[in-house]
C-alpha cells in the first residue's frame, strides 16, 4: 500500500526536516488540503489518493531559504521542482523530495458538477471508479469522467526527481503526440471565434489572482505588475481589456517556464480554463525549441538563452 510506505518515509524523514508537506482530509470528504506535518503523531492523518490534487511543490521557494522542507510530489508536480532547480529558485540542500507514482487524480469541480454541488459526505475509491455519497444517496463516477485535463495526457506518472519514492514506478500509457491535441483542435476555430471564446471566458475573471498565487512559477506575486502603480502597466478596472491583459501577462511571463500542473485552472473560482492559454505557448516551446519545462534539471529555459542560428525560426515576409 502506497499510504503505508508513504507514512514510513515521512516518519523516517521528519526528524531531519522542519516540516513535511503532504495531504490530509479537508472540510468535507471530497476535499483534501495541504498538510504541514511537524510532529510524528500527525503522520497518521496523512492521506494519499485521487483527491490529492494540489501541487505542493509550489510552497518550496518561500520556505527552503531558511528551513529544511520535505514535500510530497506527484509525477506532474515533480516538474515544478526541476524547473525551480533550473532557475535556482530553491535550495536543493534544504529540500527532501518524496515522490509518489500517481495514476491520476480527480477534478473536484467535475465531481461537484456531476452531483449538483451538494455537500459530500463520503468518497470511496476503487480502481478506476469513485463512489460519492451525499444526502441524496450514492453515486458512482468513473475516474476518466472526472479526471482533470492534465491527467488525460499525462506523460509523467512517476516523479522525474525524488529522494524517496513511495510505490513502484508507473509507466506512461498515454500517447505523447496527443498532448497538445486540444490546442490544435482550438486552432481550427476562426480568429473571430477564438477572440469571442476568450472574451466570454475571461469576462468572468474577478481578478482575485488565485491563478497567479497558486502558480508555482509565478514567483514575483508580491511585486506583480498587475497591481503595481509604478510601473503602471494596468488599471484596477474590471473591463475586458484589463482582464485579457492580466491573463496575457500571466501567460507570457510563463513562456518556457510553465510546468503544466494546471493549478491555475484548478483554482479558478469562476471556472476559467486558465491553463489553456499557457498550453499554446508550451506547445510552441516544444515545437520551436524542443523544450518542455521542468523535465530536466540541467536544461535552460528557452527564453533565457538563444542560438545564433535558430533552426525553427524563419524571417517573416510582409
Amino acid at each position: 500500500m502506497t499510504i503505508e510506505r508513504l507514512k514510513e518515509i515521512v516518519h523516517k524523514v521528519l526528524p531531519d526536516v522542519d516540516v513535511v508537506i503532504g495531504y490530509r482530509q479537508g472540510f468535507d470528504a471530497l476535499h483534501a488540503t495541504p498538510f504541514f506535518i511537524t510532529k510524528p503523531e500527525e503522520v497518521d492523518e496523512l492521506i494519499w489518493g485521487p483527491l490529492c490534487v494540489h501541487n505542493l511543490a509550489a510552497y518550496l521557494p518561500s520556505l527552503t531559504k531558511n528551513k529544511k522542507i520535505a514535500v510530497i510530489v506527484k509525477g506532474c508536480d515533480s516538474r515544478t521542482v526541476n524547473q525551480y532547480l533550473q532557475e535556482n529558485l530553491i535550495n536543493r540542500e534544504n529540500t527532501v523530495i518524496i515522490g509518489i507514482p500517481c495514476s491520476g487524480v480527480i477534478s473536484v469541480k467535475k465531481v461537484l458538477k456531476g452531483l449538483g454541488d451538494q455537500p459530500i459526505e463520503a468518497v470511496s475509491g476503487d480502481g478506476d471508479k469513485i463512489t460519492v455519497t451525499t444526502s441524496q444517496g450514492d453515486k458512482a463516477l468513473s475516474l476518466s469522467e472526472v479526471s482533470p485535463d492534465k491527467c488525460r495526457t499525462c506523460q509523467y506518472p512517476t516523479p522525474l526527481i525524488y529522494d524517496h519514492l513511495a510505490g513502484d514506478p508507473i509507466s506512461p500509457d498515454k500517447p505523447a503526440e496527443s498532448v497538445y491535441d486540444d490546442v490544435r483542435e482550438f486552432e481550427k476555430l476562426s480568429l473571430g471565434e477564438r477572440w469571442h471564446y476568450w472574451e466570454t471566458e475571461l469576462s468572468r475573471c474577478i481578478r482575485c489572482y488565485a491563478c497567479r498565487n497558486a502558480c508555482p512559477m509565478c514567483i514575483c506575486q508580491d511585486k506583480c505588475i498587475a497591481e503595481s502603480r509604478d510601473p503602471h502597466w494596468m488599471t484596477q478596472r474590471l473591463n475586458g481589456t484589463e482582464k485579457l491583459m492580466y491573463h496575457m501577462i500571466h501567460a507570457l511571463h510563463l513562456a518556457g517556464r510553465c510546468v503544466e500542473c494546471e493549478e491555475c485552472t484548478r483554482v479558478c473560482p469562476v471556472e476559467i480554463p486558465v491553463a489553456k492559454i499557457k498550453k499554446k505557448i508550451n506547445m510552441e516551446m516544444a515545437e520551436l525549441f524542443g523544450y518542455k519545462a521542468g523535465v530536466g534539471v540541467e536544461d535552460t529555459p528557452p527564453m533565457f538563452t538563444f542560438k545564433v542560428d535558430e533552426e525553427k525560426i524563419e524571417e517573416h515576409e510582409l
Binding site: N213, Q221, Q236
Partner: peptide, 28 residues
C-alpha cells in the same frame, strides 16, 4: 502561522465573500 501555512495569499476568499467590504481607490 499554523492556521496560515497553507494559505497562498490570493484574494478568492475576499472577492467571493458577501461581507468583505474593503476597497482601494485609484486614479486612472
Amino acid at each position: 502561522e499554523e492556521e496560515a501555512n497553507k494559505c497562498i495569499s490570493c484574494g478568492a476568499c475576499t472577492y467571493l465573500c458577501p461581507t468583505c467590504y474593503c476597497f482601494n481607490i485609484t486614479d486612472e
